[in-house]
Write a protein that binds this DNA or RNA. Structure first.
Lengths: 251, 251
DNA sequence: TCTGAAACAATGTGATCACAAGAAGAGAGC
DNA sequence: GCTCTCTTCTTGTGATCACATTGTTTCAGA
Protein backbone atom coordinates (compact mmCIF):
# COMPACT_ATOMS: atom_id res chain seq x y z
CA UNK A 1 0.00 0.00 0.00
CA UNK A 2 1.38 3.35 -0.93
CA UNK A 3 0.90 6.21 1.47
CA UNK A 4 -0.54 8.32 -1.34
CA UNK A 5 -3.63 6.23 -1.27
CA UNK A 6 -6.03 7.85 1.16
CA UNK A 7 -7.47 4.66 2.51
CA UNK A 8 -7.08 2.72 5.68
CA UNK A 9 -7.63 -0.57 7.39
CA UNK A 10 -7.38 -3.95 5.78
CA UNK A 11 -7.64 -2.90 2.20
CA UNK A 12 -7.28 -6.13 0.27
CA UNK A 13 -4.62 -4.86 -2.08
CA UNK A 14 -2.04 -4.08 0.56
CA UNK A 15 0.91 -6.18 1.52
CA UNK A 16 1.98 -7.24 -1.92
CA UNK A 17 4.04 -4.19 -2.60
CA UNK A 18 5.19 -3.31 0.87
CA UNK A 19 8.63 -4.17 2.03
CA UNK A 20 7.05 -6.36 4.64
CA UNK A 21 7.46 -9.94 3.53
CA UNK A 22 4.99 -9.93 0.70
CA UNK A 23 2.48 -12.69 0.48
CA UNK A 24 2.59 -13.45 4.16
CA UNK A 25 -0.30 -13.91 6.49
CA UNK A 26 -2.45 -10.81 6.32
CA UNK A 27 -4.38 -11.43 9.50
CA UNK A 28 -2.27 -9.26 11.72
CA UNK A 29 -2.25 -5.50 11.79
CA UNK A 30 0.23 -3.46 9.85
CA UNK A 31 1.67 -2.17 13.09
CA UNK A 32 2.31 -5.74 14.21
CA UNK A 33 4.18 -6.58 11.03
CA UNK A 34 6.25 -3.43 11.22
CA UNK A 35 7.03 -4.28 14.83
CA UNK A 36 8.19 -7.80 13.95
CA UNK A 37 10.25 -6.55 11.08
CA UNK A 38 12.01 -3.93 13.17
CA UNK A 39 12.48 -6.34 16.02
CA UNK A 40 14.10 -8.80 13.67
CA UNK A 41 16.42 -6.17 12.28
CA UNK A 42 17.39 -4.99 15.73
CA UNK A 43 18.05 -8.53 16.92
CA UNK A 44 20.29 -9.30 13.98
CA UNK A 45 22.26 -6.13 14.46
CA UNK A 46 21.21 -4.29 11.33
CA UNK A 47 20.59 -1.26 13.50
CA UNK A 48 23.85 -0.23 15.04
CA UNK A 49 24.03 1.53 18.39
CA UNK A 50 23.94 5.26 18.08
CA UNK A 51 22.02 5.16 14.82
CA UNK A 52 19.07 7.43 15.18
CA UNK A 53 15.79 6.13 13.90
CA UNK A 54 13.09 8.39 12.51
CA UNK A 55 9.44 7.68 12.00
CA UNK A 56 9.24 9.13 8.54
CA UNK A 57 12.45 7.51 7.44
CA UNK A 58 11.26 4.06 8.39
CA UNK A 59 7.80 4.75 7.00
CA UNK A 60 9.30 5.56 3.62
CA UNK A 61 11.63 2.60 3.75
CA UNK A 62 8.87 0.16 4.65
CA UNK A 63 6.37 1.87 2.36
CA UNK A 64 3.74 2.40 5.01
CA UNK A 65 2.41 5.52 6.62
CA UNK A 66 3.72 7.03 9.81
CA UNK A 67 1.14 5.51 12.11
CA UNK A 68 2.21 1.86 12.17
CA UNK A 69 5.86 2.81 12.44
CA UNK A 70 5.09 5.21 15.22
CA UNK A 71 3.31 2.59 17.29
CA UNK A 72 5.90 -0.08 16.58
CA UNK A 73 8.68 2.23 17.68
CA UNK A 74 6.88 3.13 20.86
CA UNK A 75 6.40 -0.52 21.60
CA UNK A 76 10.07 -1.24 21.09
CA UNK A 77 10.94 1.67 23.34
CA UNK A 78 8.81 0.33 26.17
CA UNK A 79 10.50 -3.03 25.70
CA UNK A 80 13.81 -1.21 25.94
CA UNK A 81 14.96 -2.46 22.57
CA UNK A 82 15.24 1.19 21.62
CA UNK A 83 15.65 4.24 23.79
CA UNK A 84 13.87 7.55 23.78
CA UNK A 85 16.30 10.41 24.13
CA UNK A 86 15.29 13.61 25.89
CA UNK A 87 14.97 15.20 22.46
CA UNK A 88 12.15 12.72 21.85
CA UNK A 89 14.35 11.10 19.27
CA UNK A 90 14.58 7.35 19.17
CA UNK A 91 17.86 5.59 18.83
CA UNK A 92 19.53 2.24 19.26
CA UNK A 93 20.90 2.24 22.80
CA UNK A 94 24.63 2.06 23.28
CA UNK A 95 25.80 -0.76 25.49
CA UNK A 96 27.77 0.02 28.63
CA UNK A 97 29.71 -2.42 30.78
CA UNK A 98 27.30 -1.80 33.66
CA UNK A 99 24.23 -2.54 31.58
CA UNK A 100 25.87 -5.61 30.12
CA UNK A 101 26.59 -6.89 33.59
CA UNK A 102 23.06 -6.21 34.69
CA UNK A 103 21.57 -7.90 31.67
CA UNK A 104 23.64 -10.97 32.42
CA UNK A 105 22.56 -11.06 36.05
CA UNK A 106 18.93 -10.57 35.16
CA UNK A 107 19.11 -13.32 32.59
CA UNK A 108 20.56 -15.68 35.19
CA UNK A 109 17.84 -14.85 37.70
CA UNK A 110 14.96 -15.17 35.29
CA UNK A 111 16.19 -18.06 33.19
CA UNK A 112 16.92 -20.17 36.24
CA UNK A 113 13.34 -19.59 37.29
CA UNK A 114 11.95 -20.25 33.83
CA UNK A 115 13.92 -23.47 33.50
CA UNK A 116 12.68 -24.78 36.82
CA UNK A 117 9.13 -23.91 35.92
CA UNK A 118 9.50 -25.58 32.55
CA UNK A 119 10.63 -28.82 34.15
CA UNK A 120 7.74 -28.77 36.59
CA UNK A 121 5.20 -28.04 33.87
CA UNK A 122 6.58 -30.67 31.50
CA UNK A 123 6.67 -33.27 34.24
CA UNK A 124 3.09 -32.48 35.20
CA UNK A 125 2.05 -33.18 31.63
CA UNK A 126 4.30 -36.19 31.26
CA UNK A 127 6.18 -34.56 28.42
CA UNK A 128 9.58 -34.26 30.01
CA UNK A 129 11.32 -36.83 27.81
CA UNK A 130 9.69 -35.49 24.68
CA UNK A 131 10.93 -32.04 25.59
CA UNK A 132 14.42 -33.39 26.21
CA UNK A 133 14.33 -35.05 22.80
CA UNK A 134 13.37 -31.84 21.09
CA UNK A 135 16.08 -29.90 22.89
CA UNK A 136 18.63 -32.54 21.99
CA UNK A 137 17.70 -32.26 18.33
CA UNK A 138 18.10 -28.51 18.42
CA UNK A 139 21.45 -28.84 20.13
CA UNK A 140 22.62 -31.25 17.43
CA UNK A 141 21.66 -28.78 14.75
CA UNK A 142 23.59 -26.17 16.63
CA UNK A 143 26.66 -28.37 16.68
CA UNK A 144 26.29 -28.77 12.94
CA UNK A 145 26.08 -25.00 12.55
CA UNK A 146 29.37 -24.66 14.39
CA UNK A 147 31.01 -27.25 12.14
CA UNK A 148 29.88 -25.52 8.98
CA UNK A 149 30.80 -22.15 10.42
CA UNK A 150 27.29 -20.78 10.05
CA UNK A 151 27.22 -18.05 12.68
CA UNK A 152 23.68 -16.96 11.98
CA UNK A 153 22.35 -20.49 12.34
CA UNK A 154 24.41 -20.94 15.48
CA UNK A 155 22.82 -17.97 17.20
CA UNK A 156 19.42 -18.93 15.86
CA UNK A 157 19.66 -22.43 17.27
CA UNK A 158 20.90 -21.17 20.59
CA UNK A 159 17.88 -18.92 20.85
CA UNK A 160 15.64 -21.78 19.80
CA UNK A 161 17.08 -24.03 22.49
CA UNK A 162 16.41 -21.60 25.29
CA UNK A 163 12.93 -20.59 24.24
CA UNK A 164 11.86 -24.14 23.49
CA UNK A 165 12.75 -24.97 27.07
CA UNK A 166 10.99 -21.98 28.58
CA UNK A 167 8.04 -22.40 26.26
CA UNK A 168 7.18 -25.65 28.01
CA UNK A 169 6.07 -23.68 31.04
CA UNK A 170 3.96 -21.30 28.96
CA UNK A 171 4.83 -18.59 31.40
CA UNK A 172 3.00 -15.48 30.40
CA UNK A 173 4.98 -13.38 32.84
CA UNK A 174 8.52 -14.71 32.82
CA UNK A 175 9.01 -15.51 29.15
CA UNK A 176 8.19 -12.03 27.85
CA UNK A 177 10.65 -10.53 30.29
CA UNK A 178 13.36 -12.89 29.10
CA UNK A 179 12.52 -12.00 25.52
CA UNK A 180 12.98 -8.36 26.38
CA UNK A 181 16.40 -9.12 27.80
CA UNK A 182 17.46 -11.00 24.68
CA UNK A 183 16.21 -8.13 22.60
CA UNK A 184 18.54 -5.83 24.47
CA UNK A 185 21.51 -8.13 24.19
CA UNK A 186 20.96 -9.35 20.64
CA UNK A 187 22.29 -6.44 18.64
CA UNK A 188 25.34 -6.28 20.83
CA UNK A 189 26.17 -9.92 20.15
CA UNK A 190 26.20 -9.27 16.44
CA UNK A 191 28.31 -6.20 16.94
CA UNK A 192 30.67 -8.28 18.99
CA UNK A 193 31.06 -10.63 16.09
CA UNK A 194 32.01 -7.75 13.83
CA UNK A 195 34.63 -6.50 16.21
CA UNK A 196 35.99 -9.79 17.48
CA UNK A 197 35.32 -12.11 14.61
CA UNK A 198 33.34 -15.29 15.02
CA UNK A 199 33.74 -16.93 18.39
CA UNK A 200 31.76 -19.96 19.29
CA UNK A 201 31.38 -20.44 22.99
CA UNK A 202 31.09 -23.72 24.70
CA UNK A 203 27.62 -24.17 26.03
CA UNK A 204 25.99 -26.24 28.73
CA UNK A 205 23.12 -27.50 26.64
CA UNK A 206 24.01 -31.15 27.00
CA UNK A 207 24.21 -30.81 30.76
CA UNK A 208 20.83 -29.11 30.72
CA UNK A 209 19.25 -31.93 28.74
CA UNK A 210 20.75 -34.50 31.08
CA UNK A 211 19.41 -32.65 34.11
CA UNK A 212 16.02 -32.50 32.46
CA UNK A 213 15.98 -36.24 31.87
CA UNK A 214 17.00 -36.76 35.49
CA UNK A 215 14.16 -34.51 36.64
CA UNK A 216 16.75 -32.55 38.61
CA UNK A 217 15.52 -28.97 38.81
CA UNK A 218 18.57 -27.69 40.66
CA UNK A 219 20.98 -29.22 38.17
CA UNK A 220 18.92 -27.83 35.30
CA UNK A 221 18.94 -24.35 36.77
CA UNK A 222 22.68 -24.63 37.40
CA UNK A 223 23.31 -25.70 33.82
CA UNK A 224 21.28 -22.81 32.46
CA UNK A 225 23.05 -20.40 34.76
CA UNK A 226 26.44 -21.66 33.64
CA UNK A 227 25.32 -21.48 30.04
CA UNK A 228 24.31 -17.85 30.39
CA UNK A 229 27.48 -16.96 32.25
CA UNK A 230 29.69 -18.74 29.74
CA UNK A 231 27.97 -17.07 26.85
CA UNK A 232 28.12 -13.57 28.23
CA UNK A 233 31.07 -13.73 30.58
CA UNK A 234 33.63 -15.33 28.35
CA UNK A 235 33.79 -12.39 26.03
CA UNK A 236 36.94 -10.31 26.46
CA UNK A 237 35.61 -7.28 28.23
CA UNK A 238 38.26 -4.84 27.19
CA UNK A 239 37.75 -5.51 23.52
CA UNK A 240 33.98 -5.45 23.42
CA UNK A 241 32.38 -2.69 21.38
CA UNK A 242 31.11 -0.66 24.30
CA UNK A 243 29.80 2.85 24.00
CA UNK A 244 32.66 4.87 22.53
CA UNK A 245 34.09 1.91 20.69
CA UNK A 246 30.70 1.24 19.19
CA UNK A 247 30.57 4.71 17.73
CA UNK A 248 33.79 3.94 15.92
CA UNK A 249 32.13 1.13 14.06
CA UNK A 250 29.31 3.30 12.85
CA UNK A 251 30.13 5.08 9.61
CA UNK B 1 -7.51 21.43 25.61
CA UNK B 2 -10.76 20.48 24.01
CA UNK B 3 -10.68 18.14 21.05
CA UNK B 4 -12.73 20.63 19.03
CA UNK B 5 -9.74 22.86 18.82
CA UNK B 6 -7.84 21.85 15.70
CA UNK B 7 -4.41 22.46 17.09
CA UNK B 8 -1.60 20.30 18.23
CA UNK B 9 1.63 20.15 20.11
CA UNK B 10 2.43 22.25 23.09
CA UNK B 11 -0.22 24.87 22.76
CA UNK B 12 0.25 27.03 25.83
CA UNK B 13 -3.40 27.04 26.80
CA UNK B 14 -3.78 23.33 27.33
CA UNK B 15 -3.66 21.46 30.57
CA UNK B 16 -5.73 23.78 32.68
CA UNK B 17 -9.05 22.34 31.68
CA UNK B 18 -8.13 18.76 31.08
CA UNK B 19 -8.87 16.13 33.65
CA UNK B 20 -5.17 15.61 33.97
CA UNK B 21 -4.01 17.23 37.17
CA UNK B 22 -4.37 20.81 36.12
CA UNK B 23 -1.51 23.16 36.75
CA UNK B 24 1.08 20.43 36.76
CA UNK B 25 4.37 20.43 34.97
CA UNK B 26 3.72 20.96 31.29
CA UNK B 27 7.07 19.72 30.10
CA UNK B 28 5.96 16.20 29.35
CA UNK B 29 3.85 15.09 26.46
CA UNK B 30 0.13 14.62 26.72
CA UNK B 31 0.57 10.95 26.06
CA UNK B 32 2.90 10.72 29.04
CA UNK B 33 0.42 12.35 31.35
CA UNK B 34 -2.40 10.14 30.13
CA UNK B 35 -0.15 7.17 30.69
CA UNK B 36 0.66 8.15 34.25
CA UNK B 37 -2.94 8.87 35.01
CA UNK B 38 -4.14 5.52 33.71
CA UNK B 39 -1.29 3.73 35.39
CA UNK B 40 -2.24 5.30 38.68
CA UNK B 41 -5.85 4.31 38.28
CA UNK B 42 -4.95 0.77 37.39
CA UNK B 43 -2.59 0.48 40.34
CA UNK B 44 -5.20 1.68 42.79
CA UNK B 45 -7.79 -0.70 41.45
CA UNK B 46 -10.14 1.81 39.90
CA UNK B 47 -10.18 -0.35 36.81
CA UNK B 48 -11.64 -3.69 37.73
CA UNK B 49 -10.69 -6.89 35.92
CA UNK B 50 -12.96 -7.64 33.03
CA UNK B 51 -13.81 -4.01 32.47
CA UNK B 52 -13.24 -3.26 28.85
CA UNK B 53 -11.49 -0.04 28.06
CA UNK B 54 -12.13 1.94 24.90
CA UNK B 55 -9.99 4.59 23.32
CA UNK B 56 -12.83 7.00 22.62
CA UNK B 57 -14.37 6.48 26.03
CA UNK B 58 -11.17 7.39 27.82
CA UNK B 59 -10.48 10.24 25.42
CA UNK B 60 -13.85 11.77 26.26
CA UNK B 61 -13.36 11.19 29.96
CA UNK B 62 -9.90 12.75 30.03
CA UNK B 63 -10.86 15.45 27.55
CA UNK B 64 -8.09 14.74 25.12
CA UNK B 65 -8.15 13.38 21.61
CA UNK B 66 -7.78 9.74 20.69
CA UNK B 67 -4.09 9.86 19.93
CA UNK B 68 -2.56 10.22 23.40
CA UNK B 69 -4.97 7.67 24.85
CA UNK B 70 -4.19 5.28 22.06
CA UNK B 71 -0.46 5.43 22.69
CA UNK B 72 -0.83 5.26 26.44
CA UNK B 73 -3.01 2.18 26.16
CA UNK B 74 -0.57 0.49 23.85
CA UNK B 75 2.21 1.21 26.27
CA UNK B 76 0.27 -0.27 29.15
CA UNK B 77 -0.50 -3.34 27.06
CA UNK B 78 3.18 -3.78 26.31
CA UNK B 79 3.87 -3.58 30.02
CA UNK B 80 1.15 -6.15 30.58
CA UNK B 81 -0.84 -3.84 32.83
CA UNK B 82 -3.65 -4.27 30.32
CA UNK B 83 -4.42 -7.08 27.92
CA UNK B 84 -5.15 -6.96 24.23
CA UNK B 85 -7.87 -9.43 23.39
CA UNK B 86 -8.02 -11.14 19.99
CA UNK B 87 -10.86 -8.76 19.13
CA UNK B 88 -8.27 -5.98 19.44
CA UNK B 89 -10.18 -4.79 22.46
CA UNK B 90 -8.25 -3.78 25.53
CA UNK B 91 -9.30 -4.88 28.96
CA UNK B 92 -8.04 -5.21 32.50
CA UNK B 93 -6.62 -8.72 32.73
CA UNK B 94 -8.27 -11.16 35.09
CA UNK B 95 -5.97 -12.73 37.63
CA UNK B 96 -5.58 -16.49 37.68
CA UNK B 97 -3.95 -18.57 40.39
CA UNK B 98 -1.22 -19.60 37.94
CA UNK B 99 -0.37 -16.04 37.01
CA UNK B 100 -0.42 -14.99 40.62
CA UNK B 101 2.04 -17.73 41.45
CA UNK B 102 4.27 -16.77 38.58
CA UNK B 103 4.23 -13.11 39.52
CA UNK B 104 5.28 -14.04 43.04
CA UNK B 105 8.14 -16.22 41.81
CA UNK B 106 9.32 -13.59 39.38
CA UNK B 107 9.24 -10.97 42.07
CA UNK B 108 11.36 -13.15 44.31
CA UNK B 109 13.91 -13.77 41.59
CA UNK B 110 14.23 -10.16 40.51
CA UNK B 111 13.91 -8.46 43.86
CA UNK B 112 16.57 -10.66 45.41
CA UNK B 113 18.85 -9.60 42.61
CA UNK B 114 17.90 -5.95 42.87
CA UNK B 115 18.45 -5.94 46.63
CA UNK B 116 21.89 -7.46 46.31
CA UNK B 117 22.83 -4.98 43.62
CA UNK B 118 21.53 -2.12 45.75
CA UNK B 119 23.72 -3.12 48.66
CA UNK B 120 26.78 -3.39 46.43
CA UNK B 121 26.12 -0.02 44.82
CA UNK B 122 25.42 1.73 48.12
CA UNK B 123 28.51 0.26 49.69
CA UNK B 124 30.63 1.34 46.74
CA UNK B 125 29.45 4.88 47.27
CA UNK B 126 29.69 4.70 51.03
CA UNK B 127 25.99 5.39 51.42
CA UNK B 128 24.91 2.14 52.99
CA UNK B 129 24.07 3.54 56.39
CA UNK B 130 22.32 6.54 54.94
CA UNK B 131 20.21 4.20 52.85
CA UNK B 132 19.42 2.11 55.89
CA UNK B 133 18.35 5.25 57.74
CA UNK B 134 16.02 6.25 54.96
CA UNK B 135 14.50 2.79 54.78
CA UNK B 136 14.02 2.74 58.53
CA UNK B 137 12.18 6.03 58.40
CA UNK B 138 9.86 4.73 55.71
CA UNK B 139 9.23 1.60 57.70
CA UNK B 140 8.33 3.66 60.74
CA UNK B 141 5.82 5.63 58.73
CA UNK B 142 4.40 2.36 57.51
CA UNK B 143 3.97 1.16 61.09
CA UNK B 144 2.16 4.36 61.84
CA UNK B 145 -0.12 3.80 58.84
CA UNK B 146 -1.03 0.40 60.24
CA UNK B 147 -1.82 1.90 63.66
CA UNK B 148 -4.08 4.52 62.17
CA UNK B 149 -5.64 1.97 59.84
CA UNK B 150 -4.71 3.90 56.73
CA UNK B 151 -4.65 1.16 54.13
CA UNK B 152 -3.71 3.44 51.23
CA UNK B 153 -0.74 4.86 53.09
CA UNK B 154 0.26 1.39 54.16
CA UNK B 155 0.49 0.14 50.58
CA UNK B 156 2.13 3.36 49.51
CA UNK B 157 4.85 3.10 52.13
CA UNK B 158 5.43 -0.53 51.33
CA UNK B 159 5.98 0.39 47.70
CA UNK B 160 8.24 3.24 48.74
CA UNK B 161 10.34 0.95 50.90
CA UNK B 162 11.03 -1.50 48.11
CA UNK B 163 11.75 1.03 45.40
CA UNK B 164 13.91 3.17 47.63
CA UNK B 165 16.05 0.11 48.20
CA UNK B 166 16.24 -0.87 44.53
CA UNK B 167 16.71 2.71 43.48
CA UNK B 168 20.10 2.74 45.18
CA UNK B 169 21.41 0.49 42.44
CA UNK B 170 19.95 2.64 39.70
CA UNK B 171 19.42 -0.47 37.68
CA UNK B 172 18.06 0.50 34.35
CA UNK B 173 17.24 -3.08 33.49
CA UNK B 174 16.01 -4.73 36.66
CA UNK B 175 13.97 -1.95 38.22
CA UNK B 176 11.66 -1.41 35.26
CA UNK B 177 10.93 -5.12 35.16
CA UNK B 178 10.04 -5.10 38.84
CA UNK B 179 7.83 -2.09 38.27
CA UNK B 180 6.00 -3.99 35.57
CA UNK B 181 5.41 -6.85 37.99
CA UNK B 182 4.01 -4.50 40.64
CA UNK B 183 1.79 -2.97 38.01
CA UNK B 184 0.32 -6.38 37.31
CA UNK B 185 -0.18 -7.23 40.94
CA UNK B 186 -1.34 -3.83 42.16
CA UNK B 187 -4.95 -3.82 41.05
CA UNK B 188 -5.39 -7.29 42.42
CA UNK B 189 -4.20 -6.23 45.85
CA UNK B 190 -6.84 -3.56 45.98
CA UNK B 191 -9.47 -6.00 44.80
CA UNK B 192 -8.33 -8.35 47.51
CA UNK B 193 -8.96 -5.68 50.08
CA UNK B 194 -12.50 -5.29 48.80
CA UNK B 195 -13.23 -8.97 49.01
CA UNK B 196 -11.33 -9.80 52.18
CA UNK B 197 -11.37 -6.56 54.06
CA UNK B 198 -8.21 -4.91 55.24
CA UNK B 199 -5.44 -7.29 56.17
CA UNK B 200 -2.04 -6.03 57.18
CA UNK B 201 0.66 -8.56 56.67
CA UNK B 202 3.73 -8.85 58.76
CA UNK B 203 6.72 -7.77 56.77
CA UNK B 204 10.43 -8.37 56.93
CA UNK B 205 11.49 -4.78 56.53
CA UNK B 206 13.28 -4.58 59.84
CA UNK B 207 15.24 -7.70 59.02
CA UNK B 208 16.14 -6.20 55.67
CA UNK B 209 17.43 -3.00 57.25
CA UNK B 210 19.47 -5.00 59.74
CA UNK B 211 21.01 -7.08 56.95
CA UNK B 212 21.80 -3.90 55.08
CA UNK B 213 23.61 -2.43 58.06
CA UNK B 214 25.52 -5.66 58.46
CA UNK B 215 26.49 -5.54 54.77
CA UNK B 216 25.15 -9.07 54.49
CA UNK B 217 23.92 -9.50 50.94
CA UNK B 218 22.62 -13.01 51.48
CA UNK B 219 20.64 -12.04 54.55
CA UNK B 220 19.25 -9.02 52.74
CA UNK B 221 18.16 -11.11 49.78
CA UNK B 222 16.63 -13.63 52.16
CA UNK B 223 14.71 -10.93 54.00
CA UNK B 224 13.36 -9.51 50.76
CA UNK B 225 12.40 -12.97 49.56
CA UNK B 226 10.56 -13.66 52.79
CA UNK B 227 8.89 -10.30 52.61
CA UNK B 228 7.60 -10.98 49.11
CA UNK B 229 6.46 -14.47 50.02
CA UNK B 230 4.73 -13.30 53.18
CA UNK B 231 2.97 -10.52 51.33
CA UNK B 232 1.73 -12.64 48.49
CA UNK B 233 1.60 -16.10 49.98
CA UNK B 234 -0.24 -15.40 53.18
CA UNK B 235 -3.44 -14.49 51.39
CA UNK B 236 -6.11 -17.18 51.62
CA UNK B 237 -6.04 -18.65 48.16
CA UNK B 238 -9.54 -20.01 48.06
CA UNK B 239 -11.09 -16.69 48.89
CA UNK B 240 -9.09 -14.48 46.57
CA UNK B 241 -11.00 -12.75 43.80
CA UNK B 242 -9.65 -14.86 40.96
CA UNK B 243 -11.11 -14.89 37.49
CA UNK B 244 -14.74 -15.96 37.96
CA UNK B 245 -14.95 -14.45 41.40
CA UNK B 246 -13.58 -11.21 40.04
CA UNK B 247 -16.37 -11.04 37.52
CA UNK B 248 -18.84 -11.22 40.37
CA UNK B 249 -17.45 -8.03 41.84
CA UNK B 250 -17.87 -6.16 38.60
CA UNK B 251 -21.32 -4.61 38.30
C1' DT C 1 39.38 31.34 8.82
C1' DC C 2 36.33 31.59 12.44
C1' DT C 3 31.96 32.96 14.76
C1' DG C 4 27.22 33.88 15.22
C1' DA C 5 22.70 34.50 13.68
C1' DA C 6 19.13 33.81 10.65
C1' DA C 7 16.79 30.95 7.30
C1' DC C 8 15.62 26.40 6.20
C1' DA C 9 14.66 21.54 6.72
C1' DA C 10 13.52 17.57 9.40
C1' DT C 11 11.08 15.48 13.17
C1' DG C 12 7.83 14.19 16.98
C1' DT C 13 3.25 15.08 18.74
C1' DG C 14 -1.54 15.73 18.54
C1' DA C 15 -6.02 16.12 15.88
C1' DT C 16 -9.19 14.55 12.71
C1' DC C 17 -11.15 11.73 9.26
C1' DA C 18 -12.29 7.26 6.64
C1' DC C 19 -13.05 2.58 6.62
C1' DA C 20 -13.76 -2.31 7.92
C1' DA C 21 -14.66 -5.57 11.33
C1' DG C 22 -17.14 -6.69 15.27
C1' DA C 23 -20.96 -6.05 18.80
C1' DA C 24 -25.52 -5.06 19.82
C1' DG C 25 -30.18 -4.55 18.87
C1' DA C 26 -34.50 -5.09 16.31
C1' DG C 27 -37.64 -7.66 13.82
C1' DA C 28 -39.42 -11.52 11.18
C1' DG C 29 -40.33 -16.46 10.89
C1' DC C 30 -41.09 -20.69 13.20
C1' DG D 1 -40.85 -17.96 23.47
C1' DC D 2 -36.81 -18.89 20.70
C1' DT D 3 -33.62 -18.43 16.91
C1' DC D 4 -31.74 -16.51 12.99
C1' DT D 5 -30.84 -12.59 10.04
C1' DC D 6 -30.46 -7.95 8.77
C1' DT D 7 -29.51 -3.40 10.24
C1' DT D 8 -27.32 -0.01 13.10
C1' DC D 9 -23.87 1.50 16.09
C1' DT D 10 -19.42 1.15 18.17
C1' DT D 11 -14.58 0.47 18.01
C1' DG D 12 -9.73 -0.13 16.47
C1' DT D 13 -6.60 0.82 12.67
C1' DG D 14 -4.45 3.51 9.28
C1' DA D 15 -3.79 7.96 6.74
C1' DT D 16 -3.09 12.64 6.51
C1' DC D 17 -2.54 17.19 8.09
C1' DA D 18 -0.94 21.15 11.30
C1' DC D 19 2.17 22.93 14.39
C1' DA D 20 6.10 23.58 17.64
C1' DT D 21 10.61 22.28 18.40
C1' DT D 22 14.97 20.75 17.38
C1' DG D 23 18.97 20.26 13.91
C1' DT D 24 21.30 21.83 10.05
C1' DT D 25 22.93 24.83 6.70
C1' DT D 26 24.07 29.26 4.85
C1' DC D 27 26.04 33.47 4.86
C1' DA D 28 27.51 37.91 6.55
C1' DG D 29 30.84 40.20 9.52
C1' DA D 30 35.10 40.31 11.92
Amino acid sequence: MTPDQPHAGGSPENGSQTGLEAGEEEKTTLQERVYRRLREEIMTGRFKPGRSVTIRGLADELEVSMMPVREALRRLVTERALTLKPNRRVEVPAMTPETFEELAESRVALERLAAARALAAAEARGETDALADRLEAIDLEQDRAIETGDWEAYLQKNLEFHFTLYGAADSRVTTPMIESLWLQIGPFLYLTRESLGVTYNEDRHKEAVAALRARDADALAAAIEQDVRDGMGSLPRDRLPFQSAARRLDP
